[in-house]
Design a protein around this nucleic acid. Structure first.
Length: 936
RNA sequence: GCGGGGGUGGCAGAGCCUGGCCAAAUGCGACGGGCUUAGGACCCGCUUCCAUUAGUGGAUGCGAGAGUUCAAAUCUCUCCCCCCGCACCA
């Protein structure tokens, strides 16, 4: 079958038929949205998952009688597109290579120095890909998140959020490039490293006899009781400074000023060399103990403040430094002070030394070993440590840390400082080292607001989450989300209405945009300046009336009215589709923002979270070079096989595996159905026989099953039933002599309709092949005729199959025994009384009652035989199950299949009832387990 | 560390909520056989161990250990391991 041809044909037909252009009408509405694709890269097969799942649901709902809207827009807000343009400008080789992987022509790449050009280019590319994929998208509503008319809605949204008091301002630490003077995120660093910012604390130690302090940064303020001395770098220069927000003057390393000045304003008023500081002594702010200042071999003047508090009992570096000084006679009276215990060490053992030993380090070791020891110790102590120091006894380490921090901050003896927690330096793409900057007056959305949280929880509680097991993740995400910075200094996007120099951060501008799809096609031509808050408040909230709004804004009355109408029609039953990585930001914010702004009845109704796509077991990634461009994959494998594997190859939440084999497996089965459909007309006609009823039974059971799976979007299950089981059933049907054209066509056409959501092209093709002239996609979803589901028929089939297997085994055994080949087999079904006995015993589990019951009904059967048989059944008491087949039904099942069995085994077949059989083996027959007598 | 999801046969992956028909669906792979000039496709069989010359019986078994139960892959507890997220970044 030439897929390409079929796909092209159906794509064309659909375009002409405009099947998927949704309008307000009298049917119930259903609104499906999938996460915005980001317009800075072409699509690869991984993208097929989320959008494909959405498309499957859209198609399914359409067949269930809903008027379905499935629109698509594009995201271009934020810094990635800007960074992209910059990299092209600087002729970034990696990026160019990546683009070539997608066979983007050189002349296009050359033009990609303009962010808008990039966005437009990829919007077109992605749209083309989605078209190829057969997505049933209403493209009239397409927009890009940087379109001016869209920005107007975002302005309105932020106005609303501000009115509710959810927009607040405060301090905020960000990664910063001192050279370019702007914030750096992952997209702006070399190797795409996310700058990790860590909150630390700087503690001051008053210098004895002076009015100044040494300031040192530490991650472990809880060890303050264990400080024995301070370390400085004897070769470094220190500056005496005053710092914003802290009284007094502080010595800090000169080297540290350039990075710290982005957190505090620092004014230097004097300086001292490291060696000048050595010999001074300071006071511990908590204990008052006297702490000499000593040279520390490991002190890096560029890290923190270039001053380190020394806790030799709990820090291997400190211990090593003290020991080295002792060896030189420079630190004779310094002894480690133990402030916490883990219970792992021997009494009196010095913890730092113990962990050094574990790491194979000693005081003279190089820094790597000491580093390992430090990690071991930190891990053990923060996990299991209990404080023994005064005033902290019994606290865990984290508790003690908070307590000490609070005390020191409260008394002004400590400052909060931020540092990059990344291993090694983080470099901006421009080549400058990234520092931490504290931004004042950052705008936040306060997702921590208690009332707001309650509303959001309320919303979530009433939502449908698929798969249901991801609800837990949503619950914790709702709990966890707190402040979120919402503006940036640079990037594409909507200007922040309350401070126009800022741009609204790109995740925050895509939380309620789904509503925009309901009106984008109506207001596209309207001058954006007319799209005032009054307009959106009317359309989305019903505030005011169309006449006034039209007058006030100057927008055509009809457009205002239609917009409201469209929103009211569509924004009810909604389903939102996205990947699991968005649970903790976008999807949670989606819930919050809807709960904040919209009327209750417009809140989200359903979220669908799907897994990603693995390629030959590996995650697709640019660095692995195993990204398969969507268009290439379609050309190579065909759209529908790919849709089947990628969308329906795994349950929602787990990753689906993409590889050649899987695709081929699907293709082969498509071929089978294709052939079956083509040949269906040539089959026979006539009265329905056992196999026909069997096929109908299977079909109707299948319709029920698949429908249930589709409702929960359990697509893997649906696809297995649809494709794999269908092929198995048809093969069995034909193998057993099934040959009824009408039955096969009935069966196939329903299966084909159910395939429509997942494999639309193949479905249309086969639908027509069966003689239909309509669009499968416009047909109704089949419903099951429960009358046609027959346990008796299906179990009879199972029974026969099992008996055939048994017979084969026996025949083989006979062959091995050299008793010659079999000529005839007799299948002897269990006598009526055995069926009754099984019935009684499976209910009563009582041999006596069984024997009595049978004696009453069948006086001629010896009670001795009955009780022996009942005993045998009892031994299998756990397996006892009353089969669906009765005495006569079992016999008939075999009778109807005798020809088939004979042909299959190549022997004569006789079916007998136990009562009528003269075989010696007849008495072995049992319900669901006939006796088989092989005669040679 | 915190939060979320997991650990099933050579592999992938169902089953687990609602315990028993589960030596565990299905697909792939491996192996044996058929078909074929041959390969592919297709068809049949087989794929934990032991025993078994009539379709069978038994043991072990679903990350490890303990418990509940007549009965546990399934319920409870403890432990180990893997994946993902931890923010202003899309």
């Amino acid at each position: 079958m030439e897929y390409k041809e079929i796909e092209d044909r159906w794509q064309r037909e659909w375009d002409e038929a405009r099947l998927f252009e949704s309008n307000v009408d009298s049917r119930p509405s259903y609104f499906v949205t999938a996460a915005f694709p980001y317009a800075n890269a072409p699509q690869h097969i991984g993208h097929l998952r989320t959008f494909g799942t959405a498309d499957v649901l859209a198609r399914y709902k359409r067949m269930r009688g809903f008027n379905v809207l499935f629109p698509m827009g594009f995201h271009a807000t934020g810094t990635p597109v800007l960074a992209f343009a910059k990299r092209i400008k600087s002729r970034d080789e990696d990026l160019v290579k990546e683009l070539k992987l997608f066979s983007i022509p050189d002349e296009e790449i050359a033009k990609m120095t303009d962010p808008t050009y990039i966005a437009n280019y990829f919007v077109k590319e992605i749209e083309r890909g989605m078209h190829l994929a057969g997505f049933s998208i209403d493209w009239r509503r397409k927009f890009v998140s940087i379109d001016p008319f869209f920005s107007k809605m975002i302005e309105w949204q932020f106005g609303k959020l501000n009115d509710k008091g959810f927009l607040i301002r405060g301090k905020h630490a960000v990664g910063w490039c001192p050279n370019e003077n702007n914030a750096v995120g992952m997209h702006d660093t070399k190797h795409d490293v996310e700058p990790e910012i860590e909150k630390e604390v700087a503690i001051r130690f008053r210098i004895k006899g002076e009015d100044s302090y040494l300031l040192c940064v530490t991650l472990r303020p809880e060890t303050i009781h264990g400080v024995t001395n301070l370390f400085v770098n004897e070769n470094a220069k220190y500056a005496l400074c005053s710092m914003e927000g802290a009284k007094g003057k502080y010595y800090i390393a000169k080297e540290s000023i350039p990075s710290l000045k982005y957190q505090f304003s620092i004014v230097a008023s004097g300086e001292a060399s490291g060696s000048e500081l050595i010999g001074k002594s300071c006071a511990n702010p908590i204990t008052g103990a006297e702490l000499p200042v000593l040279p520390g071999f490991f002190v890096n003047e560029g890290i923190g403040t270039g001053v380190v508090m020394s806790v030799p009992a709990h820090a291997p570096f400190d211990y090593a430094a003290v020991e080295r000084l002792k060896a030189e006679g420079k630190a004779d009276n310094i002894e480690p002070i133990i402030v916490l215990e883990t219970g792992e060490l021997e009494e009196g053992e010095i913890p730092a030394l113990a962990y050094m030993r574990k790491a194979g380090a000693e005081p003279g070791s190089d820094e790597k070993l000491l580093e390992i020891a430090t990690k071991l110790q930190y891990k053990a102590e923060s996990h299991k440590g209990r404080m023994i120091a005064d005033g902290l006894k019994g606290l865990t380490e984290p508790e003690a840390r908070e307590k000490i921090k609070g005390m020191l901050l409260g008394s002004g003896d400590a400052l909060e400082v931020y540092a990059l927690a990344n291993e090694g330096n983080v470099m901006c793409r421009c080549g400058t080292g990234v520092v931490v900057k504290v931004v004042d007056n950052q705008w936040f959305l306060n997702y921590g607001d208690a009332k707001w949280k309650e509303t959001a929880k309320d919303a979530l509680g009433n939502m449908n989450i698929l798969p249901e097991k991801s609800r837990n993740a949503f619950e914790s995400a709702l709990e966890w989300i707190n402040l979120r910075a919402v503006v940036r200094a640079q990037g594409l996007g909507t200007k922040f209405p309350f401070e126009k120099q800022y741009i609204i951060e790109s995740l925050s501008d895509s939380t309620v945009y789904m509503a925009f799809y309901t009106i984008s096609h109506i207001i596209r031509e309207v001058d954006p300046e007319r799209l005032t808050p009054a307009f959106f408040s009317f359309v989305f909230l019903g505030e005011g009336n169309a006449g006034d709004v039209a007058k006030e804004t100057g927008i055509d009355f009809d457009k205002v009215r239609k917009s409201r109408e469209s929103f009211e029609y569509w924004y009810n039953e909604t389903s939102r589709h996205s990947g699991p990585d968005l649970i903790f930001n976008h999807l949670t914010m989606y819930i919050f923002n809807h709960a904040a702004i919209f009327e209750r009845k417009r809140w989200p109704k359903q979220i669908v979270v799907n897994g990603s796509v693995l390629c030959e077991g590996e995650k697709m990634s640019k660095s692995l070079g195993n990204i398969i461009p969507l268009a290439d994959a379609f050309a190579k494998y065909g759209v529908d096989p790919l849709r089947f594997v990628v969308i329906a190859g795994a349950e929602l939440f787990s990753d689906s595996e993409f590889n050649d084999e899987a695709v081929n497996g699907v293709r082969e089965r498509f071929e089978y159905l294709h052939n079956a459909s083509r040949n269906a007309d040539g089959l026979g006609m006539g009265e329905l026989n056992r196999m026909d009823y069997w096929l109908y039974s299977k079909l109707n059971r299948k319709i029920d099953g698949i429908t249930a799976s589709m409702e929960k979007l359990e697509l893997r299950d649906a696809s297995t039933q649809l494709l794999y089981n269908t092929v198995l059933e048809l093969k069995r049907y034909f193998a057993k002599g099934g040959n009824n054209s009408m039955v096969v066509k009935d069966y196939l056409s329903k299966v084909i309709l159910m395939m429509q959501p997942i494999a639309p092209h193949v479905s249309e093709e086969l639908w027509h092949m069966l003689g239909n002239n309509s669009f499968a996609s416009a047909e109704s979803w089949p419903s099951a005729d429960k009358e046609m589901i027959s346990e008796v028929i299906e179990e009879g089939e199972e029974l026969v199959e099992r008996a055939v297997l048994d017979a084969k085994q026996v025949m083989e055994l006979m062959g091995r025994k050299g008793r010659g080949s079999a000529r005839e087999i007799r299948i002897i079904t269990a006598g009526a009384w055995k069926h009754d006995a099984l019935g009684i015993i499976s209910e009563t589990k009582d041999i006596g009652k069984t024997v009595a019951g049978i004696r009453d009904k069948y006086p001629s059967i010896s009670s001795d035989i009955v009780s022996k048989y009942a005993a045998v059944l009892m031994r299998k008491t756990n397996e006892l199950r009353k089969g669906a087949l009765g005495y006569e039904e079992e016999y008939e099942a075999f009778l109807d299949s005798s020809e088939y069995i004979a042909k299959l085994l190549g022997v004569k077949v006789r079916i007998e009832k136990e009562e009528d059989s003269d075989s010696q083996r007849a008495s072995r027959a049992s319900p669901m387990k006939p006796s088989i007598d092989v005669l040679s």
